[in-house]
Amino acid sequence: MHEIEERILEYLKEADEPKSISDIRTELSLSDKAVSVHMRNLVGNGKIIVVGAERRKYYIANNQGVAAADFDKLKTKSLEILVPAKAASDEAKEEIDVLRKEIKNMYANMISIMAVFVAIFSIVFAGGNFLFQSVNETWSMHTLIAFGAAEVGIIIAILIMLWAIKKFLNK
């Protein structure tokens, strides 16, 4: 192995993190050409491993003696592990979304049932109160119209409330 390659390899072995060509060139005071030629040799021989980034490549020492072809196998093996894990994660997210929708529907149903009970009690209470107050008075058409208007008003208010609950829960 060439002396420059040994220096590069030793630098990468001692490094705490992956290094760029610029880092290596600066630290070892080498020319661009020398670094690129020797880095190509070291990568080809499997002495160092390229850790890809979008715009810039980083390098680490291959302390485990993994050849370049073996490194590709390791990447493939890690994908074999990661892909099913990702799929399981996606399935779990879908199940969570389904459960959230079911819980939301349960809330909507409970609130709707409570609104119906409130409506029934309101109608009964309003009717009873109206009849109680009108016991001493004589029944007339005006009394009946007022009673009907009160009951219809309560029913309309409850229907509006049920509609608003449904709109709120379907957001």
Rank of each mutant, 00 (worst) to 15 (best):
Y59E: 00
I113R: 15
Y59I: 01
I21F: 06
P18M: 06
I123T: 05
K57Q: 14
G46W: 03
N129A: 06
R40E: 04
G65C: 06
K171N: 10
S89F: 15
M39I: 13
S122R: 05
A61C: 03
I111F: 14
V35M: 05
N170K: 12
Y11E: 08
E5N: 10
D16R: 11
S29V: 04
I113L: 10
K101P: 00
L12W: 00
L74K: 15
K171C: 01
A119M: 07
I123D: 01
R40S: 11
E27A: 13
Y59C: 01
G127N: 12
V50N: 02
F132N: 09
H38E: 11
L82Q: 13
E102K: 10
M1S: 13
L162A: 08
L79S: 09
G44D: 05
E5V: 01
L74Q: 13
L99V: 04
Q64R: 11
R25N: 11
P84L: 08
V35I: 06
N136T: 06
E137P: 00
G153I: 03
T143L: 09
D72L: 15
F117T: 03
A149C: 02
S122H: 05
A67F: 09
N41E: 08
K101W: 09
G128F: 15
K73F: 08
A149Y: 07
V116S: 07
K57C: 02
K47C: 00
A53F: 07
I156R: 04
M1R: 11
W139D: 06
K86A: 09
I158M: 15
P84W: 05
K77E: 11
L74M: 14
F125K: 14
I154E: 02
A34F: 05
N63L: 09
K75F: 11
I158S: 07
V37D: 09
